[in-house]
Structures are given as structure tokens and as C-alpha cells.
């Protein structure tokens, strides 16, 4: 069953045509990496999936609900679709553990003792159990991002969106975050859509790679096929540029 489905989706910012005729299907449990040069529409695309950006035309089905239908309750979709941001967006006024416990408490009405137990288990999983009481301002970038991932997981989503999760991190912090993401990808029921420039991560973890440029999807192939024989000249050019670094 497909978890995320774009059908002829068009997105404009005023006169700027940001997403052009997007057709894309992502199955439950799949890990898909979205790459492309900056300004290609990757972030815009991923942000439409949980309604942070509206689409103007077409159909966008997430977990069976049409996001473009005004009757759809966006909060219900967001309950099932977590998002991890480039700049973490942790709640600056809440401690680490409160960051994780807040949404389950308010949205899912999870029992407080249960909530705490799950939050601690998640912190354990991302290697930050000792930081439960710390404020976000006391964490490094990599630690913040791992807390942000734990916060998303606490909602037990069906899908997780990652919008350049390692782009704002110091190089030595990236590995820990990617390790956590690899762990999540191993869970076969979790659908992951990841915008990233980490080609090694894409090669190791992705089932599929989508290449975008100028608001269009130019290539949509299996990871192996994409890295071994990219068909599009723009994709070939992009790969040769990033792989020389």
C-alpha cells in the first residue's frame, strides 16, 4: 500500500513555479532519498507532505487522506507523519524530555507514567539518556538533532520526513545522527523520506533515489541503478560534482 502519493501536483510561490507536475508514490516501509541541487524543490516537496506548504493543483494522498481536500484534518495527518528539520526546531522553553513528552501528552493523551517511560527509552535509543533534564541551549547540534528525532518517534508515526537533517551540523556530529537514522530505517514498517546531501547514507540505506531539478522529478530509480547508471545528464553531472568531494 502506498503511504505517500503525489498525483500531478503543482505548487507555486506567487509566480514562481516551485513544483512541476509531481508524480510520486512511496510505499509503506520504504526509505526514499531525495537529492538534487539547491533550489530544485526538494525541501518544498517534503514540506508539502505534512501540510507545511500548500499545493495549488493535483492530489496528494498521505496515509489515505487527501491533503488538498479542505475537509481533511491536517492535525490528523501530522499525528502520523513526523518531521525532522535542518535547524532542529526543538522547543527552546522545554527540557529535553519535555520536548519529547509534550505532543504525546497533548495530542495522544498518553498516560503520564507511560509517556515518561517511552521518552526515556527513546533518549536511550538516541544515546542521550543523561541529557533528559537539560535545556536545548545546553546541547550540541548533533545532540539537538537526535532529540528532535526522538521527539518525532514518540508520536509513533507511520512516516518520518527528514529535511536536510545533517546540513547544519559540524562534520564530527553527522555520524551519530546518521547512525540513528540508519537504525530507524531498519525498522521495516517505517516509511522514510529523506532530503540529504549525504551520498554515502543514500547508498547504504535508501531503497530508492529521487533526483530533482528545477521543481521537477528527473529521475526515480532504485539506489543501485541511480548510482551506477544515472540516465539523466543533470543527474550524472550532479553526481560527479558531489562525489568529487
Amino acid at each position: 500500500m502506498s503511504m505517500i502519493e503525489f498525483k500531478n501536483v503543482e505548487k507555486y510561490y506567487g509566480n514562481f513555479h516551485a513544483l512541476k507536475n509531481i508524480n510520486l508514490e512511496i510505499d509503506e516501509g520504504e526509505t526514499v532519498v531525495l537529492i538534487g541541487p539547491s533550489g530544485s524543490g526538494k525541501s518544498t516537496l517534503i514540506r508539502t507532505v505534512n501540510g507545511l506548504e500548500e499545493i495549488q493543483e493535483g492530489q496528494l494522498l498521505v496515509n489515505g487522506f487527501d491533503l488538498h481536500d479542505p475537509k481533511t484534518d491536517i492535525n490528523r495527518i501530522r499525528k502520523n507523519v513526523g518531521m525532522v528539520f535542518q535547524h532542529f526546531n526543538l522547543y527552546d522553553n522545554k527540557s529535553t524530555i519535555e520536548n519529547i513528552m509534550l505532543a504525546p501528552r497533548l495530542v495522544l493523551k498518553r498516560d503520564e507514567a507511560e509517556n515518561k517511560k517511552m521518552a526515556m527509552a527513546l533518549l536511550e535509543k538516541v544515546g542521550l539518556a543523561d541529557k533528559a533534564a537539560n535545556m536545548p541551549s545546553e546541547l550540541s547540534g548533533g545532540q539537538k538533532q537526535r532529540v528532535a528525532i526522538a521527539r518525532s518517534l514518540a508520536m509513533q508515526p507511520k512516516a518520518l520526513l527528514f529535511d536536510e537533517p545533517t546540513s547544519a551540523l559540524d562534520p564530527e556530529m553527522i555520524g551519530d545522527v546518521l547512525d540513528v537514522m540508519r537504525d530507524i530505517a531498519k525498522d521495516s514498517s517505517m516509511t522514510m523520506l529523506v532530503v540529504t546531501h549525504e551520498m554515502s547514507f543514500a547508498k547504504a540505506v535508501a531503497d530508492r533515489v529521487i533526483f530533482m531539478a528545477d521543481g521537477q522529478i528527473l529521475e526515480d530509480s532504485s539506489t543501485e541503478a541511480f548510482f551506477n547508471n544515472p540516465t539523466e545528464p543533470r543527474a550524472q553531472q550532479f553526481l560527479s560534482q558531489v562525489e568529487h568531494h
Binding site: 507545511l52 501530522r78 518531521m83 528539520f85 526546531n89 522547543y91 505532543a103 497533548l106 495530542v107 508520536m155
Partner: peptide, 19 residues
């Protein structure tokens, strides 16, 4: 990003405002 993070986390606009 605070509002955006909260909305993406499933909070309603008013919950995000309040908390």
C-alpha cells in the same frame, strides 16, 4: 521554527501558542 516544529509534531495552532 518553534511554531513549525510544534505543528509538525502534531500540536494544534492554539496548543503551540499556549505551550
Amino acid at each position: 521554527g518553534q511554531m513549525e516544529g510544534a505543528r509538525a509534531n502534531g500540536l494544534s495552532f492554539w496548543q503551540a501558542m499556549q505551550h
